[in-house]
Simulated scan of single mutants.
Amino acid sequence: MVMGLNLRELEVFRAVMEAGGVTGAAAQLGMSQPAASKMLRQAEARLGFALFARDRNRMVPTAEAHALLPELMGAFAAIGGVERLAAALRAGRSGQLTIAAVPVLATALLPRAIQAFRDGRPEVMVRLRATTALEAVNQVAEHRAEIGVILGHSGDPRVEATALARSEIGCALPPRHRLAAKRRLSLVELAGEAVISLSPQQPVGAALGEAQGVVHIAIEVSQSSIACALVRAGAGIALLDGYGLAEARAQGLATRPVTPRLELAVTMVVSRARAPSLLAEAFRERLVAAAA
């Protein structure tokens, strides 16, 4: 059966069909004529039927050979496709990369890293999924994403965590707010304000929850962009991480650092159970550079 043939025997068969003889086929493949003849006989023995009728110095393909040739050419085309894909993957020019990140990093940090990564890799498809830190870690641990980028730390033993940077929590407020005149705000000064923050299940909210209950959260949101929209609407002032504050400044809001100083780690997580792909390794370099 054809599956019993090795690749070299298939190459000899194709070359004989194209060259019309063993001598020409051997020259085409860079091998000796006796070696080519031997491989052709082995192929016929494996198949159980003759591929060529020997007529003096001519090789006449049998009906079976003609029937087999289209399938053979399809097999070589498939092999060529695999080889091209393997070369592209080896060079980091093709493939897919899935990244799971918390929303504020998906909008403020990841775009720069992805742009730098795809520069020169136009055939690579990147999937960026904005989700909670817990879900980002789960996606990496369950191999639904290769890289996770979160705020805070992960104690999940299924992933390896690397700290990329520190993000300082600060305050976003309307430019004409009375507190905007100060260069730095204490949490005590925010006691009488309607404070907007992320939920305690998220790193910013958890950090504020540890601030000894000085700040009263009036509005709890799931994303920094929502907090900024509420500040613009005059609903209060927001406590956000450094990337959320950058988003606030881009929207024309004032931002101020707060005391006591509160910081969050920007953390990259990868699976401990699976070695990273070449694409993932290349992206990690871009991510580290972007975070720096």
Rank of each mutant, 00 (worst) to 15 (best):
R176Q: 13
H177K: 02
R178P: 15
R178I: 13
L179F: 05
L179W: 07
A180E: 10
A180C: 09
K182F: 07
K182T: 03
R183P: 12
R183Y: 09
R183M: 05
R184F: 00
L185G: 02
L185K: 04
S186R: 05
S186Y: 00
L187D: 02
L187T: 00
L187Q: 01
V188K: 06
E189P: 01
L190M: 09
L190E: 03
G192W: 04
A194E: 10
I196N: 08
I196T: 11
S197E: 13
S197K: 04
L198W: 06
S199W: 12
S199A: 15
S199H: 14
P200L: 10
P200M: 07
Q201G: 08
Q201I: 09
Q202Y: 11
P203Y: 14
A206T: 07
A207G: 09
A207N: 11
A207F: 14
G209H: 13
G209Q: 12
G209A: 09
E210H: 14
E210R: 15
V214N: 06
H216V: 08
A218I: 08
A218M: 11
I219C: 05
E220N: 05
V221L: 05
V221A: 04
S222H: 14
S224I: 07
S225F: 10
S225L: 13
I226L: 11
A227R: 02
L230C: 00
L230N: 03
V231M: 02
V231E: 10
V231A: 01
A233E: 15
A233K: 08
A233C: 09
A233I: 11
G234A: 03
